[in-house]
């Protein structure tokens, strides 16, 4: 899922302080799971903002809506008939949702309420870690299901590098060396022979190096 983190409240306040009617828009997908922008976080942030502005002598209208998703036309259309009631939208969706909102409702200012961080997993409640960089050419088949692109600081394809000590990365003693994890897993699967095979030079044109990307599936288009 896409992992995000709520922006500091000061930064949010600075952006919306000149508006009187704001729609605080949550998203029921990834940002709900990482507790950054779901219905609950919308409620808490709306309450905090209302109180902040009241304390500054300004009564501000903050309506709360949480859509199923903000990255799909059909759900974003649900607010079309009421969007004109607001001066601005504060979206707690990831960067995708914020941009889709901006594309769709051209004249309504939209502000992000979260920082979109990475594609990751919930290791435990309150701890999310990066697992994928969406490089567009998945190599997990040859690395024992552990991704050196997202989990190795150097994105080394034939690792580990010299900075790996006792299974940890030289960046931090708490950071696992991805290549140590790969070797351990290949060993557990009795596939260490795969480790001996040199990885081909990776085609980075499908990563960000090739500019903004798109996936086209004419077979499912209407």
């Amino acid at each position: 899922m896409i992992v995000a983190e709520r922006k500091p409240i000061d930064e949010i306040i600075e952006k919306i302080k000149d508006y009187n009617k704001i729609l605080l828009l949550g998203c029921n997908e990834c940002v709900t799971v990482c507790e950054a922008g779901g219905k609950k976080e919308v409620g808490v942030l709306a309450s905090a903002l209302r109180m902040y502005f009241l304390n500054k002598g300004k009564e501000i209208l903050i309506d709360e809506i949480t859509l199923e998703r903000q990255c799909d036309h059909e759900y974003l259309e649900e607010i079309r008939d009421r969007i004109d009631q607001y001066d601005a939208v504060l979206s707690l969706a990831c960067g995708v949702g914020v941009q889709f909102m901006a594309d769709k409702y051209l004249s309504t200012p939209v502000y992000p309420g979260v920082n979109t961080c990475f594609l990751g997993a919930t290791e435990k409640r309150g701890l999310w870690t990066e697992r994928c960089q969406a490089c567009g050419q998945c190599i997990l088949a040859s690395t024992g299901g552990i991704c050196p692109i997202s989990r190795c600081a150097k994105r080394v394809l034939n690792g580990p590098c010299g900075g790996s000590t006792n299974g940890k990365c030289e960046l931090s003693k708490e950071l696992d060396c991805a290549w140590q994890l790969i070797i351990d897993r290949l060993k557990a699967m009795d596939r260490l022979d795969d480790y001996e095979k040199l990885a081909d030079i990776k085609d980075w044109s499908s990563d960000r190096a090739g500019g903004p990307r798109k996936v086209v599936r004419e077979d499912v288009q209407e």
Partner: peptide, 8 residues
């Protein structure tokens, strides 16, 4: 923390 941040 929130109440501290918003000045209450």
């Amino acid at each position: 923390k929130l109440l501290e941040d918003i000045g209450i």
